[in-house]
Amino acid sequence: MNTPTRTSVKVAYSLAGGALLILAAQLIGQFGLAGRAWPPVMDVVSYVTTPAGASLLWRNTLVTFSSAAQGFLLGAVIAVLGAALALVVPIIRPGMDRFAAILHAVPTIALAPLLITTVGREDAPAVIAALSVGFVMFVTMASGFANTSSAHQDLFTVIGANRTRRLARLELPRAVPAFFDGLTLSAPAAILGATIGEWFGAPMGLGLVIVSAMQNYQMALLWAAAMAATIMSLLAYLVFIQLQRVAMRRFT
């Protein structure tokens, strides 16, 4: 009885808060409180609704989305395989942990020259996205694999499970919630990685649009592109957090 009313109050607060924020952003722009660089929200919206603006944003959003999605898939697959390998072959585990920590600490921008030489300007965004995703996924999967309860491990020992069956029937299903945790965390990382890659001379993409709009002082376009990237990231986050809730219900 109590909980639904409380959640609905929370949602109402959040909606009101969101509306308030938009209004504040509009007013700051309208009265020029933050200078010329902060346009009124309505200007940005009206730019997005022009056919030229819409088509420019849409095409570049698609490019960034496809780089981010490719990198997301690649990074997630490699990280899960790596974490599973480290689980099955424990001797390589310390080295891989250390390597993943270093990889995480590498500022992705530092990898850009390396990647442009190796994979080229077109594919660099996807690869940087894959690296950003890969670290997060590796760490969450490694800890997901590590936290199997000792009672379950004992059970599989006494019923005589071999390594593959233990992996398939205990460790993999047990790590499913961690897997979705990792996806939720790394979805924004994929989009960030893709846009960083695009700063280094990719032919298209939101990252490129943002930099060129900044340099050419096209404020409506800059804000619109930034919003497109944000909305993409937000949607990915919201989708994965739902999946993660389902996984939590199903696997625990």
Binding site: G17, A34, I191, T230
Partner: peptide, 26 residues
């Protein structure tokens, strides 16, 4: 929390690559 939670959610989702140019301009 009604104001701060949506603001935090948005800030979480803005890629820094989109944020830095705007900050630099402002």
């Amino acid at each position: 929390s009604g104001v701060v939670t949506p603001a935090a959610l948005i800030i979480r989702s803005v890629p820094i690559t989109a944020l830095i140019p705007i900050i630099a301009r402002i």
